[in-house]
Design a protein around this nucleic acid. Structure first.
Lengths: 135, 135
DNA sequence: CTTGACTCTGTACTAAACTGCAGGGTTTAT
DNA sequence: ATAAACCCTGCAGTTTAGTACAGAGTCAAG
């Protein structure tokens, strides 16, 4: 019910005010409507959406891709069939990312576990192995 | 043994030649040494390293962070103790990313599975649920 | 022995994603 | 009723991560 002003949204989501306006310009956030005095008046869910955008970004999705994800639930003209196709393409992408992260994770875990002596790093050849993973 | 020239490295790693030189300027790739005529002469492992950088980037690490990862195995003065501490910090970060990806994955999978009718997207409330996950 | 494909340095340009004003109006606490 | 703390638009500046020349040298094939 009670709408939020832009500063409240920004603080709650942990971003700069300008970032909120920037996302609106990019189409990632819909026009929130205005109060009588012309201030943007946001529904509380906006905070969750901004946080979602930030998280997805930290996972390597561009704003354009995130826009694609969000559009899945906005486009009234898309059929579920189209949405499912898009969602499945994204799923494959996400699975690849998870697999890559696990490889890096395994290499780092091995590194951390194997470095028990007090010698210099050059005696820890595990990151070399990690790099070879990607050849 | 047989060294590679910059164009061969770029092609093998699937990046632009300028990107290789850019990574060298940023300290992500060491000075490879030169042939008699002044051409950069790379050891073959360079290809793996460039691919590693690209993959890590697609997972949301900045070049600065990737430099930190790579430095783990280069800094001769660091003790294994320090390396382990850094590696473990990175591990936590990677685990958080994997967890986030899995949440997005689950939401998308549910979306794809549930959209079996031919109605419009607005009847698929699953991405709303995904957003609420991040509140 | 020249043509085409490659490399060099240096500088400048681009795109994405913000971030920060300037110059104005609004709201709220004292 | 006035200062502090908000908000508005519009536009310019910044950072990150490349990309693209220009002008010059190198090398291999025909």
């Amino acid at each position: 019910m009670s709408k939020l002003r832009i500063g409240q949204v920004a603080q709650a989501a942990g971003v700069n005010i300008e970032t909120i306006r920037f996302y609106e310009r990019c189409g990632l956030l819909a026009d929130p409507g205005r109060s009588e005095s012309g201030y943007r008046a946001y529904p509380p869910e906006t905070v969750g959406r901004v946080r979602f955008i930030k998280r997805a970004q930290q996972l390597g999705f561009t704003l354009r891709e995130i826009g694609g994800l969000l559009a899945l639930r906005i486009d009234e003209t898309a059929t579920c069939e189209q949405v499912r196709a898009q969602a499945e393409a994204k799923l494959a992408e996400i699975d690849a990312k998870i697999a890559d992260l696990r490889r890096i994770r395994a290499a780092l875990a091995a590194l951390a576990a194997a470095c028990v002596n007090d010698g210099p790093t050059s005696e820890c050849p595990l990151l070399d192995a990690m790099e070879r993973e990607f050849e």
